[in-house]
Nucleic acid binder design. Sequence first.
DNA 1: AACGTAGGCCAACGACTGTTGACCGTCCAG
DNA 2: CTGGACGGTCAACAGTCGTTGGCCTACGTT
Lengths: 197, 197
Amino acid sequence: MTENSPPADSGTLRPRRSEATRAAILRAALARFAADGYERATIRAIARDAGIDPSMVMRYYGSKEGLFRAASEIDLRMPDFSGVRPAEAGEALVRHFLQRWEEDDSLAAMLRVGLASGLDEGRQQALLEGQVGPAVARFCAAAADVPRRTALVASQMIGMAVLRYLVEVPAVTSMTHDEVVAWLAPTVQRYLTAENP
Amino acid sequence: MTENSPPADSGTLRPRRSEATRAAILRAALARFAADGYERATIRAIARDAGIDPSMVMRYYGSKEGLFRAASEIDLRMPDFSGVRPAEAGEALVRHFLQRWEEDDSLAAMLRVGLASGLDEGRQQALLEGQVGPAVARFCAAAADVPRRTALVASQMIGMAVLRYLVEVPAVTSMTHDEVVAWLAPTVQRYLTAENP
DNA sequence: AACGTAGGCCAACGACTGTTGACCGTCCAG
DNA sequence: CTGGACGGTCAACAGTCGTTGGCCTACGTT
């Protein structure tokens, strides 16, 4: 009932001319959610941006919450760090996050919206465990430490993202990538590899 | 017009029996904004919590946004750090923030709501400059560095607050104050006093 | 050529919102 | 004793929202 799934026959069977519309809706939704937050972003406005009728949004995504869920799939695209020397792990991580944030607005957007109202409970935790965790695990010996070290690394990266991309504090936005790395990399490095203090 | 100011004769002249109601509204508003976010928190619900009619909220605070502005006055209560040795600055700051966050729910609440939608633009920046800045300035020599070092310190503290009080990541909430301090204090210390890298 | 179906629009419903204005009791000053 | 301001309630307005169901059109298949 509420589960208005995508076309049951997924993908390559038929051309499915509607895929373009589907994508347009998703793109518009992402932009609106990012700019206005979950509540202020109206389905009507999203539909208008996508150039279609609001009812189409319901048809394709079932409900506003369904649309949001579809739009807020975050992929940090953590690269393969196997070639990185342990001593450079901090720098590698900080650089990756900086680059990722700035090549994809939706990350900052979803940071804002995700924090705003606990709509997708446990989603952020899954993101930590599923995406950041494995990368952290590659650099720290004791497996039992991974969750804590992951969270510590995340705390620094999220805090930086908040100030640089959400609040947009001048003292932070004016820093170059290299400067940010110079300050944050040692911190992250310590969270990754320092002995339990 | 929109400026529905508090009683023009401020304070001690007359008993102003309504101050109790005013405070009750503010308390209820804070709790609702914290729990539900700005949009979901309705004036009707706040009024119900405060035990009065929704129209009283309008009378006293002019509009929902006015109420929010009044409810989101944040005071970090930065103590006097003049007796703290420079080498212990990081620990002192981290401990203060931890204690402050946990004695006053409204801080985490306003972190959430404040980030959610840019209602009070520049408010957070004023908070950094006005409250965190002076404390940081006490520990770093070059005055020109203060904004940047302030922002760096804030980035780590805000990131920790997000994970510990908003997302409530188990790996973070399970840490004791001492453990948090042990991990974060060196970071903050470095942001305060390390040479520009 | 006939037809089922997918893609899409239109108009409306019901609920809920912030906000307003009219009204009422109670206390204090004159 | 009387009038006015204060603290407060009630009911309503106007607007917007998510969501729904009916209807239309074009196209691919048979």
